[in-house]
Design a protein around this nucleic acid. Structure first.
Lengths: 199, 199, 199, 199
DNA sequence: AATGAATGAGAGTTCATTCAT
DNA sequence: AATGAATGAACTCTCATTCAT
């Protein structure tokens, strides 16, 4: 993810400046929502003139596209293929919780994207893809773990995976049910999943 | 300008017109989000002039306040004090699911409010209150049901209540994990809650 | 044209303000051309806020549409149905010359419109209509005058009418051939037409 | 960056590239008018970077200056000193018509320049010079032709020349009176000039 | 000789809000 | 109680121009 290979060099300009702008937009969305997203603020945050924003991204919408990719990428880091299936699942839950605690902005932005996807088919398609992949991954882990005797086998893995996703997703909106309660929900989920508290 | 009827309750204006405006705003938020909320559209939807909106609500923000109340009220209908504690809980889950299926706008608006609460302490306070009450209600039902032998007693009712809230909350954002998967999550939640003893 | 009948009240606002804006735009076009036409300048000239311009005309283009109508209307005044055909023709030439001398802005704007019509089919259609009507009118006068023995009969009235239009049109662009020479051209045209100098 | 050839004439840059840019600008003006003239489009049309345009022409205005020269030069080709005065005149009319039919862009640009000259004294001076020379040339031909008995002698050659210029000028704006009618006007002009004795 | 990156100034348009009626 | 007219401020986006390389 951060090697020495030359940047893809898509569009005009250097990839570095592009990335700075995407991150500036990302943070603005986290702080003010799409509702309060202003190109001038993004430019100011990135320390460039507003015209520079349009030099790299012809429209505000195309910049938002960059933010979507960025947010999805942050999330993908939470699924690491190390250890037994049950460990992978445990680690995934932990990784998501840590991600959302360490970088609450990721959660805010994901929430904004989820809301916006109802009006923006481009975002909707990307989220659908991401969620489908996520669901497959969790379900796969559940099945393997059950087969290996690490989990109770009677679970319908499709539905259990859905519940896992639901619980984790709620964490992205800290104020949805209250930040503290999100932790409790996750703990109870783990208890039911593994019949013990993790961490 | 020259009527003889006594003015209605709250300040100027009739309650009916106020309610119409709140509902128009409510639907606009559901359709376009706060991002796309325009007083002109609200006025048009309510069939009045823009200035009329400001006659009843001095600012856009105050109108949003009315929408918050409206949305919360829609939600409170899902907790009915009939039947045994376990039945009440079951009915609550069902009622929330039906509400969100019948009136998806309630879910959309709740999602928008949850997101906005991160930047708006007024909304945050209202949501906190609502969620605290909701949590107490569910926890109370869980405890009573456990005491009455209708549920497994070993559960930490605080955390189970949190998981119930998390699962239901996710349903408000259909595209968060996918509409179909929300149903599955709820089914799995019910299975773990009501059906079997774990371990 | 300026009676006491109520204004047509098309679109928002009163016709008076609309007309003021059209005239402000008209003068700006005459002075700076379409090249230098700025909504802010139009607003300033009309003594209103720039948002007021958009209150009456949703887009700059729609305001330009109003200017086209206005300019065409100014021109139509030069054809008056009084006197013999030859007199009408003579008067028409005189009226056009006077109009372009008294209000050189009409000429400038017509020139701008002619140029713009190459890229704007809406304007092109209006100019085509106007020119067709103009041609028919002049040709009719020529024919009637010839029939009444007031003009040499051998002329191809279609082509003579075209030459009359060409000569008058050039006058709208004072700098096309030079203002003074436009007067000379018109005098020569009259000489050939009527075999004598008019005025 | 490291060539050994001596730098070409005018200041920096080669004349060839300058000419390419002028022609690109010329065509852009013909297609979009001054209203739609963008340095970026000129650069793209010439296949160079925007900054290169400014390397050869410090400002947009200076590039326009080049276009004026170019357009005038195209026009001067229509006066050829071959044949009798009457033939030269006939040929001139024909040449102008052919030029405007074959390269309608010349007409469009001349129209744009004529309009712009009202606001740009530099252009105005150049057009005045050109028109004065044109007028002298035509008047000279008329006088010589009359003296040689090839044309009716009684004409005021100043005014006839002005009418010739007016008629030809109108042809540059095809939509001024309608392309077809421009041809008719020219035909009638020729008829009056060459064919018959009036009175 | 030529360019990619960057920008200041300004373009048309939008919007919540005000006010006289 | 309700509105048409009007506006200040701010929005996204554009453009001629500059400059280091």
């Amino acid at each position: 993810m951060s090697q020495t290979e030359p940047a893809p060099k898509r569009g005009p300009g250097q990839e570095k400046r592009r990335q700075e702008l995407v991150e500036a937009a990302f943070h603005q969305i986290a702080e003010r929502g799409f509702e309060g997203l202003r190109t001038r603020d993004i430019a100011a945050r990135a320390g460039v003139n507003i015209a520079t924003v349009h030099y790299y991204f012809p429209t505000k919408e195309s910049l938002i596209g960059g933010v979507v990719e960025h947010a999805m990428a942050r999330f993908r880091t939470t699924l690491a293929p190390q250890g037994s299936p049950a460990d992978q699942l445990r680690n995934h839950l932990r990784a998501v919780r840590h991600l959302l605690v360490d970088e609450p902005e990721v959660g805010m932005v994901m929430g904004e994207l989820a809301l916006r996807s109802a009006r923006d088919e481009t975002i909707a398609a990307i989220l659908r893809d991401g969620n489908d992949g996520w669901h497959r991954a969790i379900r796969g882990l559940l099945r393997h773990a059950a087969k290996a005797g690490q989990l109770r086998p009677e679970s319908d893995s499709d539905e259990v995976a859905a519940l896992v996703m639901a619980t984790l997703s709620t964490m992205t909106l800290p104020t949805m049910t209250g930040a503290a309660r999100n932790e409790q929900a996750l703990r109870q989920l783990e208890r039911w999943l593994f019949n013990q508290v993790i961490d």
